[in-house]
Amino acid sequence: MQPIFAVGDIHGQLEELHKVLDHIASDAEADAPVVFTGDFVDRGANSAAVIDTLMQGQTEGKPWTCLMGNHDRYLLRYLENPAYQDPETSRPLYYTDPPIGGDKTLASYGVDTDPRRWPEDIHKDALAAVPQAHRDWISGLPRIHETDEHIFVHAGLRPGVPLEEQAEDDLVWIREPFLSDTRDYGRLVVHGHTALQMPELYDNRLNLDGGAGYGRPLHAVLLLGRDPLLVGAFGRSSL
């Protein structure tokens, strides 16, 4: 049974990311792998620096796996087409609309996102500001990560669909029917995407999104088999 850490949706919250990394570094299993479940950008003020931090850690050889979230994918699609609206959203929204929070991401790259500016001008500046290295890194993020005891994804799985046939839209976007599904997937499904007040363990899954995208703390857990422990300033605690 190999210990493994997991971290939920970061959403540009750089200070929270550094706190979590410090907590992990202070743990007895500090050298264990870490899986970040996606949504590194949008809503928070420091998306560019969050990506820099994760890229730098991987460059230094840290055993970090970063998964793609729907917000990460939205940034790429916005750069390809400023009028893009993801059909999976609950209502029609552009990337720079506040509920998505892409305006905060572009601002973290130095783009003037004043809504009085022409959208075409904002997009032109975004293309110049977002480094190709960041775009390539996001494009190459895996959508799923497996261990003997866990299935890590950003949003969840489509019930009844074999793992190898899961659609990307579901892996990064799904809520129902996944959230209400009680079947055993054979391994613990570890995900984020659906914001709660705190990470929560269910019989078949662990939701790590404690709402950092809405100003709440970011959390890390240490997984020992299917048993998660919160890792914080005062050590480990049960969920």
Score class of each variant (00 low, 15 high):
76 L>K: 03
77 R>W: 09
78 Y>C: 05
79 L>A: 05
80 E>P: 03
83 A>C: 06
83 A>R: 13
86 D>P: 06
86 D>E: 12
87 P>K: 14
87 P>T: 08
88 E>C: 07
88 E>I: 00
89 T>Y: 09
89 T>V: 14
90 S>T: 15
90 S>D: 12
91 R>D: 07
92 P>I: 09
93 L>I: 13
93 L>Y: 10
96 T>P: 00
97 D>T: 00
98 P>R: 13
98 P>W: 13
98 P>T: 11
99 P>V: 03
100 I>V: 15
101 G>C: 05
102 G>Q: 01
102 G>L: 02
104 K>N: 13
104 K>F: 03
106 L>E: 13
107 A>T: 12
108 S>P: 08
108 S>N: 07
110 G>S: 09
112 D>F: 05
112 D>V: 03
113 T>I: 14
116 R>A: 15
117 R>A: 12
117 R>C: 11
118 W>P: 02
120 E>C: 06
121 D>R: 13
121 D>V: 11
123 H>W: 15
124 K>D: 10
125 D>A: 13
129 A>R: 04
129 A>S: 14
129 A>V: 06
132 Q>T: 11
134 H>T: 05
135 R>T: 14
137 W>G: 00
139 S>T: 15
139 S>I: 12
140 G>H: 07
140 G>M: 03
141 L>W: 08
144 I>V: 11
145 H>M: 06
146 E>C: 15
146 E>L: 15
147 T>K: 10
148 D>K: 13
149 E>Q: 15
150 H>V: 07
151 I>Q: 07
152 F>E: 04
152 F>P: 06
153 V>T: 12
153 V>P: 01
154 H>A: 06
154 H>E: 09
154 H>D: 05
154 H>I: 07
157 L>V: 07
158 R>E: 13
158 R>I: 01
158 R>W: 06
159 P>G: 02
159 P>W: 04
160 G>T: 06
162 P>I: 02
164 E>I: 00
164 E>C: 00
165 E>I: 00
166 Q>W: 00
166 Q>E: 00
167 A>H: 02
168 E>S: 02
169 D>H: 02
171 L>T: 04
171 L>N: 01
171 L>Y: 03
172 V>Q: 02
173 W>T: 00
173 W>Q: 04
174 I>E: 08
175 R>Y: 05
175 R>E: 05
175 R>W: 05
